[in-house]
Design a protein around this nucleic acid. Structure first.
Lengths: 243, 243
DNA sequence: CGTCCAAATGGTCATACTGACTCTTATAAC
DNA sequence: GTTATAAGAGTCAGTATGACCATTTGGACG
């Protein structure tokens, strides 16, 4: 009782849209390809799924191997599967894209295989520019879908906390929304919304002072995962391509 | 420049969670398996993706072949990919599950291969009962995910119209929400919400009278796809397993 | 044929949430 | 010490919602 060799035969890969926020801009991690096809262009970290490995394990392994990112602390979820017949010139390659979010830690983009990994602002990736990267395969579509998923999930989940290191201030958290959505949010209203959502954040009781301004309270992520009602996303006042 | 035969080699299938509403209950279409593995149990319609076919085409083809459903009018979207290493005893079979919604038309569950297709109320599928079906593979999980996706999308999209034949009354549309969510909605408030959302429905100007009660206005689906703000889902008052 | 019923439709009102805004406080930079 | 900056506290009007009540209308029923 086995599957005929040719029944639905494909090569299966995972790719990871790893997002973080650097200098107030939403950024995606890309790896420069050293081999054909698409040598010299930039691709999402990813690779073939091995024989006895599930998808999430494959995604975390590839993340570690190709970019030196310890996938332990990052949020990882399945995004979508891309299977257009000729998306890969080598043959029928189907990829299960994943979305990963992490804070802007002193990023270990320095591993062995990871020498060619780099953070790119998503606006430079999504809008073709002279100084932006050229993407391999259908990765522009995948990046776009990943970013849109992230934008949507900030509305109705507490996932924004995945973008900041602990502990964080409400200003840090607000900066996440502003960077991902490309809008400016009213600080008092944002504060009211976050604090009125049970379990969104937990007050540590401590404060920090960063440069000018009144010291800010420090928080940890709470137990809540969903926002009811949702955080409303204003129309993009800033240019969304600034990501 | 090809992929080594063994690199990420899997068999790829599509499966479809086709939902409709019959007699006020949310139902899923299942097919009785005639062959091993899982002969005699019930499975989602689906099958292997052919060499030059994309996923959506495969899903529509399988729906037509296995259940006689003309996939033209049904809403179809990718749901999630399931790839646990031993989910299929025949080998490494990965399935891309899809979610499909259709109105309760005089359903053509009568095609050739489709002789073994049947609608099952989702509550009988999700909660093991003596008279409910036994599902093959990891299809219980897939059905659960599909139903949860449908419930969620009714909140923030106009997808409920995919469950009703045109033209429809606001009572028909409200019944969709009530069946999928397992709640009772206030008719005047529901009406206000739907009519105040531009492009949710389009008034035909005609009315119908069905049995008792004041004749109801008839509507077509509008151009809108998203609901802002969302339709709020009350806590399940009715038992959700009645789904 | 008249009455009753059920469902659609048309409203009201209190409450919750949001967006826009002002004001105060506390710290670092100058 | 003064000022710039950001956090934090609070106000107020507009909107959306949930819970109701009232009216309309055609078929069902006697």
């Amino acid at each position: 009782m086995t599957v005929p060799d040719d029944a639905g035969a494909v090569s299966l890969t995972v790719d990871v849209v790893l997002l973080t926020i650097r200098d107030g801009r939403l950024c995606v991690l890309l790896v420069e390809r050293g081999i054909e096809p698409f040598a010299g262009t930039w691709a999402l970290p990813g690779g073939f799924v091995t024989a006895d490995e599930d998808l999430e394990a494959a995604a975390r392994r590839e993340l570690a191997e190709e970019t030196g990112v310890d996938a332990g602390p990052v949020h990882l979820e399945q995004l979508r599967t891309y299977a257009a017949p000729h998306r890969d010139p080598r043959g029928r390659v189907v990829t299960v894209a994943h979305l990963a979010l992490m804070p802007d830690l002193p990023h270990p983009v320095a591993g062995s295989d990871a020498a060619h990994a780099r953070w790119w602002p998503v606006d430079e990736v999504l809008t073709p520019t002279t100084h932006g990267p050229v993407l391999a395969f259908d990765h522009p579509t995948i990046v776009r879908d990943g970013v849109e998923r992230a934008r949507a999930k900030l509305e109705y989940t507490t996932l924004a906390t995945s973008f900041v290191a602990e502990p964080f201030t409400l200003g840090d958290l607000r900066s996440v929304y502003e960077a991902v959505w490309g809008v400016d949010l009213d600080a008092p209203n944002f504060r009211r919304k976050v604090l009125s959502t049970p379990g969104f954040v937990v007050d540590t009781g401590e404060t920090v002072s960063v440069g000018r301004g009144k010291p800010a309270g420090l928080y940890h992520p709470g137990e809540a995962t969903d926002l009811h009602p949702a955080m409303l996303r204003p129309e993009p006042s800033r240019d969304l391509t600034r990501g």
